[in-house]
Simulated assay, not measured.
Amino acid sequence: MQKQSSARTARFARRVMGAVALAWSVGVSAQQAMPVTELSSGIHLIRAEVAATPADRQRGLMFREAMGPGAGMLFVFDAPSQQCMWMRNTLIPLAVAFIDDDGRIVNVEEMAPQTDATHCSAQPVRYALEMNAGWFTKRGIRPGAVIDGIARKR
């Protein structure tokens, strides 16, 4: 009798753990889905996930192991102010462009992975665009350049 009870308990525990794992993976998948927008700078196209909620901005690109060559993440803030980014739990090196309301890049910062060092905008901005490290430099995109399509994200 005790063997049957132990076997039933083990089956029940496996079912519960399976259900918990399924619910967690569905929750994580749903949580990571962010809207995507198309941006550009000159001839350079960008496919950016949009992080517009506090939770999405806080999570950002954490735990990602790779990002495509034209992929990025656009952080949209409620109002222009000095914005700072960090790389806690971010596994890939990134570059961030801080962008004003008109879509003009204010400054670009390179960021090393898995650090708590802050990288801040040189003046109040509403947007930050994270791309793979060196993306802006390799394309000659500097402060003053415009990211097209960004001003309509207000």
Rank of each mutant, 00 (worst) to 15 (best):
A52V: 02
G60M: 08
S29T: 00
Q58W: 13
D56C: 07
L45W: 06
Q58N: 15
H44F: 08
R47P: 03
Q31C: 04
D56F: 10
S40Q: 13
E38K: 09
R57A: 04
Q31G: 06
L45N: 14
G27E: 05
Q31R: 13
G60L: 06
V36Q: 15
G60F: 07
T37G: 08
Q32V: 07
R47C: 10
S41H: 06
R59Q: 13
A33R: 15
M34C: 05
I43P: 15
I46C: 14
A30Q: 10
T37D: 07
I46V: 05
Q31A: 14
E38P: 06
V36N: 06
A52H: 13
Q32C: 06
Q58M: 14
D56N: 07
I46M: 15
W24G: 07
S25I: 00
P54V: 02
Q31F: 11
Q31N: 09
G27L: 13
R57N: 01
R57H: 01
V28H: 08
L45M: 12
S29R: 04
R47I: 09
M34I: 01
R57Q: 05
S29P: 00
V28T: 03
A23V: 00
A52K: 12
A23Y: 01
V36A: 12
V28Q: 09
V28S: 12
A23D: 02
G27Q: 12
A23H: 01
M62N: 03
A55M: 13
M34D: 12
W24S: 14
A33L: 12
A33C: 04
E49H: 07
M62T: 01
V28A: 10
V36H: 11
R59V: 04
R59C: 07
P54T: 00
T53Q: 07
A48T: 01
L39R: 03
S25A: 04
S25T: 02
V28C: 07
A51I: 02
G60W: 04
S40D: 04
E38W: 00
L61N: 02
G42D: 03
V50Q: 03
S25L: 05
V50C: 06
T53I: 08
H44C: 08
S41P: 11
E49D: 11
M62E: 05
V50F: 06
T37V: 13
A30F: 07
A55Y: 08
A33I: 06
P54G: 06
S25K: 01
V50S: 05
P54W: 05
G42L: 00
L61F: 10
S41Q: 09
S25D: 02
G42R: 05
D56H: 14
L39D: 12
S29A: 12
R47W: 06
L45F: 10
